[in-house]
Design a protein around this nucleic acid. Structure first.
Lengths: 334, 334
DNA sequence: AAACCTTGTGAAATCGGTTTCACGTTCACG
DNA sequence: CGTGAACGTGAAACCGATTTCACAAGGTTT
């Protein structure tokens, strides 16, 4: 029951009758070791239930097997299930590849904060960032050669490796669906337009109009901030302005629910008077009444893709940004 | 711009004109070092922007400064914002205390899996587990002396350190509130009754009845599983059985919404015919219509408390389990 | 048959801290 | 004053792996 003392190379070497160097070679897949010796080393390793000591390995090799997942807690971390879900996907894939997930929840804003130092100090082999407004820090880190993946699109002019949902396609599909079901005047309530994701959804909306040979009136675009309240407020404003709006694409589910509330408060019904589509297909979309039609994004897959891109970078394999498809989930609201 | 080579003890020692041992003493708060020398060491440290090398420190000292957060992905990780929120609280507090959060999303079920080995191998200084059904693994780890904290109550007969929401008090307050607003026949839809949390909420319900000098009929207890569907199904069943139920406490918000759906499908209204209370005060409670009265638990605080208990253990300070209060948030549904 | 590669191997240095140990110094006390 | 305790200090061992380097053995080229 007493936990036997940790096995070390020196014990293995002695048991197997070889040198520590050979043990290291075997365990790191150096092909030059004689077959029989390799086998006997592996036997001893097996018998002793040996596992490498992380710190020792890191110190000697310079590789930590740690990947940082950096989450800016300036954002609405505390209520949004998004990041937790992505992170679980990341963690699973990393673990399958013998990498560990180091979670850094912190204010990323400062380019010179403790996180910055930490990441530069070679304490991790790579870092996965969630979408952020300021990418100065990321850019600086990239210069040091630290492998980086961004979950969510970075700002336009960079060449970071990133994974993202197809926001454009989602916005396009949502708008198209509204048009196809007969809506004549489709409005949009955007999310934070400062973020790339927010902008891309709007672009998708525009594109759908363009394909009809039309251009959406400026007045049909309302600017929300992803909150329930903003959805409600903007919808009320839209309807007060143009009572003949018969469809609305809200850039997330919460705003969609807010919009529905505003519509019903005006005595109109969903979807008969105004059809509503949200984005995310979160739990609120599934449980709201009427059920909310929404653009589903596969958040776990997003995390997994991020991890895969990180691993590819560590292996010096070529990497391409990855855009994951969305799927329109049709419920009662549109 | 070239990242200057990492500073080391030997550089600091030379610069400050002392030995490496003294540098170590200064940096680890050994009080015996002469004041002036200490100062000069600190000056050099400052000037060089020195930071300790984690792996080296871990190797030499046997302490890793890493705390594992172990999440069982057998659970409904992927949609539940709960764990992500707790984890962010944990991470913040740990970071403030110079500890890092190592995230392990994995199947904890096996007592002999890779995680088990990992945790036993001294790779982390402590582990925080989320509530789990089987605590065999945790018990085994505890025997090795690894500091452990459980987020959520462990099974009854153990003496693990844990933090939890006051499930009993929450269930009690919810039931009491229904009674106080005039409900004569209050039902409950439980969550997974196998979990301690699930059971405690039910106990709170019972206690409220007891204080009225009554015992709730067996038929008023319906067993759900925290899903929207189970809430809807059980509520329908309850009403089919006993149409005079006028209040229901659902053990989470999702089931509460399901219950509301069932109630309205029957042609009844909330809260006039049946008042409904949920648990969690999650985003769905805030955005549903009618607004859902719910028992709020402070999830971030839960994580922070977990981290604090871990830190106390690492310092060998005495630790007591911590039960965090709940708060009834009253909206339209009850 | 001399000169030159391979290939497989172990001794030893190395990574960057921590900790033990032994050696002065200084100080208090008898 | 002599003596033991307390204090500061640096040399060196140590943590557990990786990696360099030297070398022996066997195989190829001229």
């Amino acid at each position: 029951m007493t936990p036997r003392p940790r096995a070390t190379y020196s014990m293995i070497a002695k048991e197997a009758g070889v040198s520590e160097a050979t043990v290291s070679r075997v365990l790191n897949g150096d092909s030059r070791v004689d077959g029989d010796r390799a086998k006997s080393v592996l036997d001893v390793v097996e018998r002793l239930g040996y596992r490498k000591h992380r710190a020792a390995t890191a110190l000697a090799s310079g590789r930590t097997n740690l990947i940082a997942v950096v989450i800016d807690n300036d954002l609405s971390i505390f209520s949004d299930p998004f990041w937790g879900t992505v992170t679980s996907g990341i963690s699973r894939v990393l673990m399958e590849n013998e990498l560990q997930t180091l979670l850094l929840v912190t204010s990323v804003s400062s380019i010179d904060g403790p996180v910055a130092h930490y990441l530069q100090a070679g304490e991790v082999d790579g870092a996965i960032f969630f979408q952020l407004h300021k990418d100065a820090l990321v850019r600086k880190l990239a210069k040091t050669g630290l492998p980086i993946v961004i979950a969510g699109s970075p700002h336009a002019a960079t060449d970071f490796v990133f994974v993202d949902t197809d926001n454009f396609g989602g916005g396009h599909a949502a708008t198209k669906h509204l048009v196809n079901r007969g809506c004549k005047k489709v409005a949009i309530i955007t999310g934070d337009i400062e973020t790339v994701a927010g902008h891309q959804r709007l672009d998708g909306y525009h594109q759908a109009y363009r394909e009809l040979g039309r251009v959406p009136a400026k007045a049909l675009t309302a600017y929300g901030d992803y909150s329930y309240e903003s959805g409600k407020r903007e919808m009320a404003r839209l309807l007060a302005d143009q009572s003949d709006i018969d469809g609305v694409f809200a850039c997330n589910d919460l705003m969609a629910l807010g919009a529905i509330a505003a519509i019903e408060e005006r005595g109109l019904t969903v979807p008969n008077d105004v059809a509503v589509i949200g984005f995310d297909d979160s739990v609120v979309a599934q449980t709201s009444r009427p059920g909310l039609t929404s653009v589903r994004q596969d958040i776990v897959a997003l995390g997994e893709a991020a991890a895969e891109l990180m691993i590819a970078q560590l292996r010096n394999e070529p990497v391409e940004p990855r855009i994951l498809p969305t799927q329109l989930v049709i419920r009662a609201s549109a």
